[in-house]
């Protein structure tokens, strides 16, 4: 008791600071977790969370049995996979090339310009995509010069993933290279000297000194990326770019949850799908983080 009192008098201001923080996390992040029980209930807003009846795994089963299940899983995984295959190496390559630029000024200019799209809002980026990719938009005007017939890209399902992933690279390649440039800066310069005396040219140096030097960072980033494999890209961006004609390839779990839950107000069912997705994400993230910690003794925290 005395100990508690002494602790309070010593740390009371610290507890005072913690109070709003704890309230924030409780109210805005833990209350919704409590509300997750509606995934197992026949939720009706009138009866409330506690008053609604338990239905066990009914929503999960009907989701699994639904026509959409495999389509959503496929789309979610494919978007992440395409981002992994094409989006992941891009910043690494850029960082390696940036490091080879001899002129410091030129390098700074390239960096400043390639970081820029990262700061542009997703609404503006999507708005530009919608405009450029429309039937008479800039892209079709350009391909038209070569006699290629016009395509309304955003209503063709086959084009969706390409557009999503390539615009994602445009948005993030510069920004993503920062972490690798930092890793490159940490490489011991004497390694390059040694390579040079062994007669290694620039290309050989990249391959045998720079790349191995940043390999730990690459591996960590890759493992963390695996943790987001079932996240299926950015909900905001897909919502802005997809439409009912492209659901076949563009509809992922999170967009489906958004439509069923917030537009059709099918709360219990969509909360269940969200929970299903979040549990998978959780398991992937935790294992990704565990593995990266083991491999490198470095991890998210």
């Amino acid at each position: 008791m005395l100990k508690l009192l002494r602790d309070w008098s010593r740390h009371k201001y610290i507890y005072l600071m913690l109070l709003p923080v704890v309230i924030y996390y409780l109210v805005f992040l833990y209350f919704p977790m409590y509300g997750l029980q509606i995934a197992f209930k026949d939720f009706s807003p009138v009866k409330g969370i506690l008053g609604s009846e338990w239905v066990g795994f009914k929503h999960f089963i009907s989701f699994y049995d639904s026509y959409y299940f495999w389509r959503l899983i496929r789309n979610t995984l494919l978007i992440s996979l395409y981002e992994l295959v094409f989006g992941f190496p891009a910043p690494i390559i850029l960082a390696l090339l940036l490091n080879e630029i001899r002129s410091r000024v030129f390098k700074n200019v390239v960096q400043s310009i390639t970081y820029l799209p990262h700061f542009i809002s997703i609404v503006v980026v999507s708005g530009m995509l919608v405009d450029f990719l429309s039937g008479n938009g800039l892209i079709n005007q350009l391909t038209g010069l070569f006699g290629i017939p016009s395509v309304s890209f955003l209503i063709v399902p086959e084009w969706f993933r390409t557009i999503y992933v390539s615009s994602g690279i445009w948005q993030g390649v510069g920004w993503g290279s920062i972490i690798y440039l930092a890793a490159i800066a940490g490489i011991d310069p004497s390694l390059y000297e040694a390579a040079k005396t062994d007669g290694a040219g620039r290309f050989k140096q990249i391959l045998h000194v720079t790349l191995p030097g940043i390999m730990p960072t690459i591996i960590i980033m890759l493992i963390l990326r695996f943790g987001t494999l079932m996240a299926g890209g950015s909900l905001e961006k897909i919502l802005l770019l997809y439409n009912s004609t492209t659901y076949e390839t563009a509809d992922v779990i999170s967009t489906f949850v958004y439509r069923r839950g917030l537009l059709q107000m099918d709360y219990g069912f969509s909360a269940a799908i969200g929970l299903f997705n979040n549990v998978i994400n959780f398991l992937l993230l935790v294992s990704a983080n565990k593995i990266s910690r083991k491999i490198n003794e470095t991890s998210l925290w």
Binding site: V27, F31, P32, M33, G35, V257, Y258, F282, V286
Partner: peptide
């Protein structure tokens, strides 16, 4: 414990619908 509870929210959340209802 508070740090643990805070970091946990980076891994898991209630999700879109429960957050909206909240």
């Amino acid at each position: 414990p508070i740090m643990f509870a805070i970091v946990f929210t980076m891994f898991f959340s209630g999700g879109l619908i429960p957050t909206y209802l909240n």
